[in-house]
Design a binder for these strands. Sequence first.
DNA 1: GACAAAAATCGACGTCGTGTAGAGTTTGAA
DNA 2: TTCAAACTCTACACGACGTCGATTTTTGTC
Lengths: 204, 204
Amino acid sequence: MPGHHPARSRRTTERKGDVRERVILDTCEALLARKGYDAMTVGDIAQGAGITRGALYFYFGSKQEVVTALVARTVEHLWERSRATAQADEPRQAIAAAMRRTVELWNEHGLVMRTAIDLSLSVPEIGELWSRTADLFITAITAVLERAGVQPGTEPDQASAMARALCWMIERTFYHASQESREKLQKASSTCEHIWLVSAGLTV
Amino acid sequence: MPGHHPARSRRTTERKGDVRERVILDTCEALLARKGYDAMTVGDIAQGAGITRGALYFYFGSKQEVVTALVARTVEHLWERSRATAQADEPRQAIAAAMRRTVELWNEHGLVMRTAIDLSLSVPEIGELWSRTADLFITAITAVLERAGVQPGTEPDQASAMARALCWMIERTFYHASQESREKLQKASSTCEHIWLVSAGLTV
DNA sequence: GACAAAAATCGACGTCGTGTAGAGTTTGAA
DNA sequence: TTCAAACTCTACACGACGTCGATTTTTGTC
């Protein structure tokens, strides 16, 4: 997101600015945890990164751009992880694996994910990023449901519609649980997994 | 929320200020729809209500207080409506009735409800208001689940935990659907109802 | 209907955070 | 060495917020 100076591609040695950029994002993440988005000021970020406001505006055009870059960095990581996870064939296993992975993601990046959700409305760029991420999950859930025998086409239990609802359930449940504690997150995961299983027709 | 002058209770004739207060909230709601929370300024609200900024600060201490009052007004209405709805005995009927009512509420007050959700984090007062509202729904869902035979105590399918997850599913699904169209809202409702039914063990 | 108290309104002010401008310094490749 | 780019800083202008004190209008009472 270094919008100002386009030609900083193909390069072996790391520019000083690349480091700064990373430090800025790290600082932003820390401040987000400590003060929250509204209370966090551009001056705070700059100070935390050891530069002045003026210098920060060389890297990012606004406070929103900083946070957008932070979200982008995190979301990038989510996508990587999603790609890396092998798709199990057996629905029960697939569901268990997916929930396990989701718990991990929220444990590691809960703060930024919550921020992304919160800012999805006011910062369209972030909204886009998050919605693309959600679509990834919805697609995956849909696949599992269909493999478990849920009809792809008939309303209202068509797989994709159900997948969407289940995705929002997981998002919101984890959103809240991740604010509390790891234990809550684990319990929330169990509950969501159970509902997912039942919805897939895999009753115990 | 007329915090400034406490002793305005028991009164038959309506003060001029009571009208203004209502006009301010109405204006705020309209602006919220047109520009969104961030873009909406205190000056905008005042101008829309036909007064100056200074006058508005006589009624409310801040922009947040105005929106909080608006949310409070709406939430009050939700509670009223919830109380008025008779609790059907038969689970299937109860679920159908609840979803029907939820669709109505989101159709009428979707904008303010979405705003309440968005500001739950940054405005603690609103967070409290909304969380209390959610608890109402969770309690209701729990009751239905238990009446349908879901164990109240055993993990992870204890009724209250499932109810919480289902509540968040409905909230988030309706949140998104109500931004699109009434049709989407209706479809979303069907899907949520289906998942709720299945979760209650009332498989078709 | 007059009059005092309360309610309501206004305009001006100080503060804070944002984003921009321009000038100066460092870095690195030719 | 030199020159352009990458980088940094201080200073400024703007907009929104919230406060203050003075002033006008409304309200209830005699």
